[in-house]
Amino acid sequence: MIAPRRLLTALIAWTVVSPAAGAAAQASTATISANVATLAKLTLSRSTAAFPDADPDTMPQVAATGGAITISVKARARPATVVLLTVQASGDLRSGLSVIPATNITWTATGTGFVAGTVSAVSPVTLASWTGSGLRSGTQSLFFRNLWTHPTGTFTVSLVYTLTSP
C-alpha cells in the first residue's frame, strides 16, 4: 500500500523528467571559442661566454669556455609560417678604445633547423628557422677567430638572440 503523498510526489517527478507528449522541440547551440594566440619563448642555458687568451699559431680558433650553449625554443605560430631565431651583436668587441670586429665570432650548431654562421653587428644573422608551431632545441658552439693582428685587452660584447613567431 503506497501512501497517497508518496504517490503524488513520484507522479510529479515523472512529469518533470519525462518529455511532455506533444510539446514543441527547441534546439539550442552553444558556440565554443578557444583563443590560441601566437607565442614565442626562448631559453638559453647560459648568459655568458668567455674566450681565453691563446697562441694564434696553435689555436687559430678559440672555443668558448663552458662548452656549447643549449637553446630551447617554444613557438606557436600560424600554419605554414616561419619561426625564426636570429643573433646579432650589440656592436664590435671593445676594450677601451680598442676594437675587434664582431665578425671574428663564429659558431657551429647542432639540432634540426639550426645552422652555422658568423656574428654581425650590422644585421641579425639566422641561427635557426622552422615552419609552424612546435618545441625545438639545439646547441650553439661559439668560436673566436684568434689573430696576431688583434689588439690586446679584455674585450666584451653582447649577443642578442631574438625568436620571432609570426
Binding site: L44, R46, S47, T48, D53, T156
Partner: peptide, 10 residues
C-alpha cells in the same frame, strides 16, 4: 629575446 655577454681575453 635573450642576451649572452661575450668576453674575449687577448
Amino acid at each position: 629575446t635573450k642576451t649572452v655577454t661575450i668576453t674575449a681575453t687577448v
